[in-house]
Design a protein around this nucleic acid. Sequence first.
DNA 1: AATATTAATCGTAATATTGCAATATTAAAA
DNA 2: TTTTAATATTGCAATATTACGATTAATATT
Lengths: 108, 108
Amino acid sequence: MGATKADHFTNKQNQIAIIAKALGHPARVAIIEYLLKANECICSDIVNELPLAQPTVSQHLKELKNAGLIKGSIEGNAICYCIDEKAFNVLKEYFAKIILTVTDKKCC
Amino acid sequence: MGATKADHFTNKQNQIAIIAKALGHPARVAIIEYLLKANECICSDIVNELPLAQPTVSQHLKELKNAGLIKGSIEGNAICYCIDEKAFNVLKEYFAKIILTVTDKKCC
DNA sequence: AATATTAATCGTAATATTGCAATATTAAAA
DNA sequence: TTTTAATATTGCAATATTACGATTAATATT
């Protein structure tokens, strides 16, 4: 069916899944790393950097933005995209908590 | 096309994407949390816990295992699944580094 | 105003994911 | 050895994702 029964899961579970899903493609990870590397916010340089066509990059940017991983502001002709730390903080703390919980226990 | 040009991205980018993708579904996040909550390693209790049929849970477990997020060991009749911290550590450190890098800069 | 630049959107093809019923497999229990 | 329990696998339908060419919309430049 392919339908994801989001209702059956907690808000937190859905939040984590949405953010993680956005990072679940190497092109989007590459975009994040490029935004990180560039001193200033970029726009279409990503197209030159990645082996992907402009509409594809635009689509990936949209998904990253929807998931809250980046934000974009209009800068004249172009659009300035940059990383939004908040989402990354959510992930980092979520995983940190998991690791703390796991190491308390023994298994397998 | 749907083809992911994994070759064009770095090993690290692909590694992060694979792990993140595995967590990109609320059911798999819920499975992780359930494994975390349970004092002992579990097997098919997950099927009773989640609103998903047994083959579906089995498939999700397989994907989590392929991504290195959990490991399973045969325990007689059943299979004992549990969290593999290593993958979570990879993610945590990756995001921690991103956050450190971001806060140094100003943008948008 | 005409043209170039930047980026979003539309349409569409190829492929992947999700979910489950049915079935197979494996090992314990009776 | 038959039965039971726990999982995995297969096959398939519904849907989502990925990618890109063509087009559009909006601002800059000339």
